[in-house]
Amino acid sequence: MTRLSDPGEHGGSVVANGNAAALTGALRPARLRARTRRRLTGLTMVAPMLVIVLAFLGWPLIWTLVLSLTNMTVTGPTATHYQFIGLANYRELFASGSGLVQSILLSLYYLGASAYIGQALFGFVLAYLMLRCTTTVRKVVGSIIIVCWLVPEIIAAWMWFAMLSNGGTLQQGLHAVGIPYQTWLVSHPMISVSVANSWRGVAFSFLLFSAALSDVPAELIDAAQVDGANAWQRLRSVIIPLLATTILVDFVLITLGTLNDFTLIFAMTGGGPGTSSNVLSVFMYQQAFVTFRLAYGTASAVVLLAIGAVFSFIYIRTLRRQGALNFAR
């Protein structure tokens, strides 16, 4: 497609695309100047973001890696006179009995229960059912689900804390129908926080899948129906393949969100009882601010960063394959 050049390249010369402009532009000084100017404009526009991201994300990121190699504590002699101790923190973390492995397993549990089952799968079911609902139900129930997502996380934690507490609404309700209730926050802390997180987060996957499902062409479904496919077969062989990318994107994004989650668990159980809901993010906090070992806590943060990096990498690959990162040059 032919396109006019941008105003940086004086005159109305017509170029095919950016590549051609770059090729021919390099040959003439005027073009060179224009390209420099264009780059300058671009750089000026990106500059504010570059500065703020480098200053407030880049440097703390480097500092995280540096601190994790020291023995800095909150209090005690090493609070101010800390030394580099190489990889000692990591050796201790990966030695048995550190609790790191338990925390990673709990994080994976939280991921599986609250993200994959409670949000992705449940969100898909909700979106699928919702397409078959009356407009009123769609509007009302859809709004309720979204409101759960919009409520600040600390409020969600507070409501679920109150619901599940000893003497809370759930106990009262179960008691009324004659079912005994053991305080879930204590007897099943991971289930408690997973239920709360699913309740809060399912809207995201629900919205994503609703949008994708409504884009599935009706003809394809009709064609499958004509071929004698039942509802399950239509879902499996027509709808899910069409939604493959959306599903992958959803998985990666909720994985990252759930791994980074701290507030809900910290407020509801504090990682307890004992260490029974001490997911990685809470483990990190406990080591740094409760047992006062800042550097050791930071080393466990690096483990969290590394796990997050793996999923970010998967995300980028997915987006690239999908073409979302293709550049118009």
Partner: peptide
């Protein structure tokens, strides 16, 4: 019981 001491509101309990 465990539910009492592992509750953040234990002293209030």
């Amino acid at each position: 019981p465990v539910s009492d001491w592992s509750n953040p509101n234990a002293s209030a309990t």
